[in-house]
């Protein structure tokens, strides 16, 4: 296992708070940083809402975990990919997101997915 570097992709397709998937996915991503793997995060469909700026969760008495996406850089997790068509379908643009991302078309996202060794989706 020592020295093995695999391409891991974490696929996020769900909005935050309605279900716990986004938060618990982020927890795996943080742990994966300790394994020195080639980690990518893909935000498709409603997953793009996870990165929306200005999340205010006081009213639902739930912890706002969105600042953690900003901390990913400190863990050397810098490959964040967002589906272009998903942003468009939700009236969002790159400026609405709280971190720097690479915007990919669906076809480009599909090609990137093909390159992975491990695809984990939650």
């Amino acid at each position: 296992m020592e020295g093995v570097v695999k391409k891991f992709m974490f696929v996020n397709r769900k909005a935050p708070y309605g279900t716990i998937y986004a938060l618990e996915s982020l927890e795996v991503v943080l742990i994966s940083a300790a394994f020195d793997q080639d980690v990518s995060l893909a935000f498709l469909d409603d997953g793009v809402y996870q990165l929306k700026k200005g999340q205010q969760t006081k009213g639902i008495e739930t912890k706002n975990f969105s600042p953690t996406y900003r901390a990913l850089e400190g863990y050397d997790i810098e490959k964040l990919y967002v589906e272009k068509e998903a942003l468009e379908a939700r009236g969002l643009s790159e400026d609405d997101l709280l971190v720097d991302v690479t915007v990919l078309s669906r076809a480009e996202m599909g090609a990137l997915m093909e390159e992975q060794d491990v695809v984990l989706s939650f």
Partner: peptide
């Protein structure tokens, strides 16, 4: 197949 993705 080289890899698989579950569309959950």
């Amino acid at each position: 197949n080289k890899n698989c993705q579950s569309w959950l």
